[in-house]
């Protein structure tokens, strides 16, 4: 699998390896493609569509689309960023994202992508849906108000922890994360050290007694935009 594949992103020549997805090759080359549901250690889900790029003019999710010789990828364009802003806006208005008291604020990937894309406020009317909070587990609590249905916890628990604690239930706007247990999170074998407790991009899966440890100003995305680490790899 070491066959080299050459293609371009926004006119920049990238050399990737056969079998890589666009996002993997871009990350390695130091080009940041905005994303939310993608996590490098998990199987790509392709559900949030934030990483949508144009491959030879056709929209594709960069986290699932394999690279191919000679393809032309467009990533950093006004139109794609507008599309991404629309998706992020919808994620904000479909949930209850109260950043001002969320322990994930400053380290939240949804918020960070919104900051990076320069969103000052969502433009749509808010849903204010009724969502559940499950705080029955002694060490972890689940706040579905903030869930963006990225599916990272589902994959991490199933594929890495080998537990299958989380699963999607319902369809469309009623779709949500549920726990695979008699009644609630306390009835599962989820542990704080599990991968599933670590991969949530937003403030849905939280470890108790760890909140607000980092002061404002020193949090992950306070001074540098998300993706800066990837861009610093650029030669």
């Amino acid at each position: 699998m070491s066959e080299q594949i050459t293609f371009t992103i926004d006119g920049i020549e990238i050399k990737g390896k056969a079998g890589q997805t666009i996002i993997e090759a871009a990350d390695e080359a130091g080009i940041y493609i905005p994303r939310l549901c993608y996590h490098p250690e998990l199987a790509p889900h392709g559900s949030c569509r934030v990483c949508t790029v144009l491959v030879n003019g056709k929209p594709q999710s960069a986290c699932t689309q394999p690279i191919a010789e000679g393809i032309t990828v467009e990533n950093n364009t006004k139109e794609l960023d507008e599309h991404r802003r629309n998706l992020i806006d919808m994620l904000f208005i479909e949930g209850n994202h109260f950043c001002m008291f969320c322990e994930k604020s400053g380290n939240c990937e949804l918020q960070a992508v919104a900051y990076r894309l320069g969103i000052l406020a969502p433009k749509y009317p808010y849903f204010f849906p009724k969502k559940d909070v499950d705080s029955t587990h002694p060490d972890i609590f689940l706040d579905l108000n903030r869930c963006i249905l990225c599916g990272r916890c589902v994959s991490a628990s199933r594929d890495i922890d080998g537990k299958g604690v989380f699963e999607f239930v319902g369809r469309s706007i009623e779709k949500k994360i549920a726990v695979n247990a008699e009644a609630s999170l306390k009835d599962t074998n989820l542990k704080q050290a599990d991968k599933a407790a670590d991969v949530c991009p937003v403030g849905t899966i939280n470890k108790k007694r760890t909140a607000f440890a980092i002061p404002i100003g020193k949090r992950l995305y306070d001074s540098k935009p998300i993706g800066s680490d990837i861009e610093s790899r650029r030669k």
Partner: peptide, 10 residues
Amino acid sequence: ELPYELIKYD
């Protein structure tokens, strides 16, 4: 044109 550090939701 607002600098990155000033856009905060909290």
